[in-house]
C-alpha cells in the first residue's frame, strides 16, 4: 500500500467535470517478475484534458501509459478507457486501440513503407476506409505536421524530428479520441525537439485528450491542465503545473525538480 500517494488524482478530476472520464485507472498494480512497478495507481483523465506525467526514470510512468492501450497488462485494479474496461476480451481491446493513438520514444515507423503508406495503413485495414480517402486524410495530417513534401520518402530518409512528426500524423490518421505520448522527444537531438513540441502544442489546442510522458517542463507549463509526478511506481503528487513546479509538497518532488533544473 502507498501511504504517501494522495488520492487527489481521482478527487481532483471528478471535481473538474461531470462527464465520464476518458481514461480511468483505479488502484492499478503491476509487477515485472517480482518487481512492483505500478503501486495502486489511480488517476482519472477527463475528455479534452491534457495530462503530463513526469518523474525519474524507472518510476513507472512509461509502464502506466503503456497499460492504457494494453501494450503492457496490468495485474490488479481496473483500467477503463472511453467507457470500455480493459480485460482479456480482444474485441474490447481492438475497440480501445482504434480510439487511442500512441507515439513512441523511438518513433517505430514501419521502415519498409513510405511515409504516406505508414499513415494510410491503419485507416485502410482497421477502419476500412477507401484508399483514396485515406490518402487525402493522410496528406491533410502530414500538412498539419508540416511535412507533406516527404510523403513519398521512406522513414529512413528523414531526420528524427521529421520521423516523430510522421508518427504523430500516423496516429492521428485513425482519428483517435485520446493520444498517448511516451517520451516523444527523448530520442531527439536538441534542435529537433522544438519542431515536435510545436506540433504537440497545436494538437493540444484542438482539444484532444492527451497524456504525455515527458521531461519537457516548458511544454508541461504551456499546455498541461494537470501534471502527475510519479516515483517508484506511485503517483506522488498531482496538480496544476503551477502547483507542481512552484509549490512542491513532497520531498521526492522537490528532489526531482532540483535535479531537472540543474540539468537545464
Amino acid at each position: 500500500m502507498s501511504e504517501t500517494a494522495p488520492a487527489d488524482g481521482t478527487v481532483a478530476s471528478a471535481a473538474r467535470t461531470d462527464a465520464p472520464p476518458a481514461i480511468l485507472l483505479d488502484r492499478v498494480n503491476k509487477w515485472f517478475g517480482t518487481l512492483h512497478v505500478l503501486r495502486d495507481v489511480s488517476l482519472a483523465v477527463a475528455p479534452g484534458e491534457r495530462v503530463v506525467v513526469c518523474g525519474p526514470s524507472g518510476s513507472g510512468k512509461s509502464t502506466m501509459i503503456r497499460c492504457i492501450n494494453r501494450l503492457e497488462k496490468h495485474q490488479e485494479g481496473r483500467i477503463v478507457v472511453d467507457g470500455i474496461e480493459l480485460t482479456d476480451d480482444l474485441r474490447a481491446l481492438d475497440a480501445i486501440r482504434r480510439e487511442v493513438g500512441m507515439v513512441f520514444q523511438s518513433f517505430n515507423l514501419f521502415p519498409h513503407l513510405t511515409v504516406l503508406e505508414n499513415c494510410t495503413l491503419a485507416p485502410i485495414w482497421v477502419r476500412r476506409m477507401p484508399r483514396k480517402e485515406a490518402e487525402e486524410l493522410a496528406m491533410e495530417l502530414l500538412t498539419r505536421v508540416r511535412i507533406p513534401e516527404q510523403a513519398h520518402k521512406y522513414p529512413g530518409q528523414l531526420s528524427g524530428g521529421q520521423q516523430q512528426r510522421v508518427a504523430i500524423a500516423r496516429a492521428l490518421c485513425m482519428r483517435p479520441k485520446i493520444m498517448l505520448f511516451d517520451e516523444p522527444t527523448s530520442a531527439l537531438d536538441p534542435e529537433m525537439i522544438k519542431e515536435v513540441l510545436d506540433v504537440m502544442v497545436e494538437l493540444a489546442e484542438t482539444g484532444m485528450t492527451m497524456m504525455v510522458v515527458t521531461h519537457e517542463m516548458g511544454f508541461a507549463r504551456q499546455v498541461a491542465d494537470r501534471v502527475v509526478f510519479m516515483d517508484r511506481g506511485e503517483i506522488v503528487e498531482v496538480g496544476t503545473p503551477a502547483e507542481i513546479f512552484n509549490d512542491p509538497k513532497t520531498d521526492r518532488l522537490k528532489l526531482f525538480l532540483s535535479q531537472i533544473l540543474r540539468g537545464h
Binding site: 501494450l71 513512441f104 514501419f110 485495414w125 482497421v126 500516423r170 496516429a171
Partner: peptide
C-alpha cells in the same frame, strides 16, 4: 525490433494484419 510489433498493436491491427503487413 519490438517496437514494430508494438506500433502495429497500438494502431489496432489484428494479429494477421500485423503479421502480413
Amino acid at each position: 525490433p519490438r517496437g514494430q510489433y508494438e506500433a502495429a498493436d497500438a494502431l489496432g491491427l489484428t494479429y494477421w494484419q500485423k503479421t502480413g503487413l
